[in-house]
Design a protein around this nucleic acid. Structure first.
Lengths: 400, 400
DNA sequence: GACATTTGTTGTCTGTGCCAACATAAAGCC
DNA sequence: GGCTTTATGTTGGCACAGACAACAAATGTC
């Protein structure tokens, strides 16, 4: 599981730890295991944590008391010995995810058990003001609340921004798509809804989702690259942790300069990955006008005209160099490609891989795998929910 | 302080923590604080850890019992109240650092208190075999042992390799300067000396030193770039932790491709930072033949011929783009430049900074600082020693 | 049905850090 | 100098988290 905040007990130098922290740390670890597996047996918890049976019993009891997990009946049998009881994550704890898009804002309710229980799409102007997004979210939330049960609890809200987000101040630094600059949207929306709000870059959110529940599961060092209409975004996971940098702007992988080309990207930077590999150019080369994602994907895979093939090959070459740079910097286990980068990879994986390896240093290029992302269109909801649950997972006892 | 290994208690999901781990974690934190400050008062330890006075008393007592620290007299006065006693790191615990160079291998003994107590330089061939470096180290070590006292303890050895090191297997993947490929040098030297041996990339070692005791002190997100005869190496610290990647090859910052240039670097990769910004070209442009570091530095700073200035400016431009890429990827607090990159920066810092900012994304470019490195020619000894002490610092009680 | 195997529960124990009270050592004040 | 004030070290008792052992419960095996 990928951790957003390093709360790991006594992690940073200086702070000592007491018995209370010990308890919290163990509770947190246990809850994370249950969250990640949705349902898990107590005996598995025992063996995975290495803690004593009686301790697990005690800890699970506390989590049950906090109504964060529930114990269900044995279920699985067939093995010798007394069957172990199952522990399941609560199904009535919800995160609200907000995704502003063209023409509309999409708000969803995702349970801790991973279910998307309710969804509302509210029309907004093409370049909505912060207030207009707040309005839309408020309306959507009231609609969603009606669909939830009385016992359901909403614990927080996340917003996926396709731009730069200052995660320390919970504010949008710059978002060209929304035409926002320096908007303290976290505080704004939080005051309006009366709920804690976390905003984050969409690439980081998607990376979080993909690394925990998607194709990155089980890997500790991951690079995630997403190609969309807004450009190329992504995220980096190192030792199971999403890197954020000093302010949270880390991971602007699309704006890495690779060549001397004068072509510019969405931020006006020239010769970058995003400037040379983008959706519009591909759509144009394939004769498509504002295609859907899957439409573009099949067009890329089935392209036959020499011009289109040439352009696709060129983009693969540039992507290969971009990936090689990232391989040299991070020595990752796996690179995940999403959005239109996915069909680009599939169109000629051999070429991409061999050219990437050719530009990468010996050690790092040997083990690295390139894969397509596994999560579909709901990825921002999955990642956004995780962002919200993270606090709870890190500090279960505070949820009273 | 920068941690090499994440042992941070309950850090990775799954493993639970018991009271023993709690104690070890607190002991470790305390020892790290003493190590980092060389000498520190008990009251400072209390306030920095947040632990109780009596707990600190107990823990320090245990560290004294382990002979890892010693309590000295009050020393500092002037403030009201009973003066706090000082705790100092042991001065008789040593790390051996091995640095293979042209014509010789340099072996040093560095104490935990940061003192370089003994040093031996043994002549070796230009491209020594692993066995020849082992031989040299063995001879040097016996010389060094004579200079140490009976009570001095050597706890481990580190080797700084100017090449790719698989830190998992403790082996050299490839080192062009030594002409080694796939050499399990850690095991080799360890068997010969009967001491634990850790090998690592010189850039990582230098980064470790600079971030803990040098110009990176106090920063949590650091990029370190070193320019030497072998090319450009470096390291990256994120949230106080040196990134290693899957195998330990991370941080090959010199081999990032920036342009379409056909110039190749030491690994044969074209258009990379190292291919375009290197020592040989600078020396040649300045009319120097195999200059010393300081000689080259002053020549860069005092260059007057138009051709030399033009070449220097060109290199600054390329460096600016390289730094901008790193800024976009990592959103660091500070970038540290060492080796010949240092005078290059000083030659025209305004140009470097403005061009770097021009190619970087808005958020990240605002806070980032560029500084020159603070540690001098002993940096590999300082960092290498830290590598050796890391294990002890992470697990003080095991040192019995 | 007897037995082995695995898991959950309960009571006891150990050890770790906290706390309060006291002792100690300095500075400030008269 | 003697008093108070302030800050620190020390000591004994305490609370509580997790380990451990013994027992109970639930399943499979013969």
């Amino acid at each position: 599981m990928v951790k957003v905040e390093s709360q790991s007990f006594a992690g940073s130098i200086g702070r000592g730890a007491n018995r209370d922290d010990l308890r919290q740390s163990n509770l947190s670890n246990l809850l994370k295991l249950v969250y990640q597996n949705r349902t898990i047996s107590r005996s598995d918890l025992t063996s995975m944590t290495g803690l004593n049976r009686s301790t697990i019993s005690d800890l699970v009891g506390e989590l049950v008391g906090l109504k964060l997990v529930s114990e269900s009946e044995t279920a699985q049998a067939g093995r010798v010995g007394r069957p172990s009881s199952n522990v399941s994550i609560a199904e009535n704890i919800f995160a609200i995810t907000v995704v502003p898009r063209y023409h509309s804002t999409i708000v969803s309710a995702v349970s801790m058990s991973g279910e998307l229980k309710a969804r509302a799409r509210i029309a907004t102007p093409i370049h909505p003001s912060p207030e207009e997004v707040c309005d839309a979210t408020e309306v959507a939330l009231s609609q969603i609340r009606k669909q939830l049960k009385k016992t359901d609890r909403i614990i927080g809200v996340s917003v996926a921004i396709s731009g730069q987000v200052d995660v320390r101040n919970n504010s949008v630094r710059i978002c060209s798509f929304l035409k926002w600059t320096e908007v303290p949207f976290g505080a704004l929306l939080s005051e309006r809804l009366g709920l804690p709000v976390q905003i984050d870059n969409d690439g980081s959110i998607a990376c979080l989702a993909e690394s925990t529940f998607g194709a990155g599961r089980g890997f500790s060092d991951i690079i995630y690259l997403f190609g969309g209409t807004g450009g190329i975004g992504g995220g980096v996971v190192i030792e199971d942790k999403l890197i954020r940098g000093y302010r949270g702007y880390a991971g602007e992988l699309g704006h890495i300069r690779l060549t001397d080309s004068k072509a510019v990207d969405s931020l006006g930077l020239s010769g970058t990955l995003e400037a040379l590999v983008n959706r519009e150019q591909l759509a144009e080369a394939l004769g498509l006008d504002d295609p859907e994602d899957d439409e573009l994907a099949s067009a890329i895979l089935e392209a036959s005209s020499p011009r289109a093939r040439r352009i696709i090959d060129k983009k693969i070459d540039v992507l290969a160099i971009g990936l090689a740079n990232l391989v040299n910097i991070f020595n990752p286990q796996v690179i995940l490609l999403a959005g239109f980068l996915q069909p680009l990879f599939q169109a000629n994986d051999y070429s991409l891989l061999s050219k990437m390896r050719h530009s990468a240093v010996a050690g790092s290029r040997e083990h690295v795998q390139v894969r397509t992302a596994a999560l579909g269109s709901r990825i921002l909801e999955i990642g956004g929910a995780q962002l919200v649950f993270q606090d709870l997972l890190n500090n279960p006892a505070a949820s009273k």
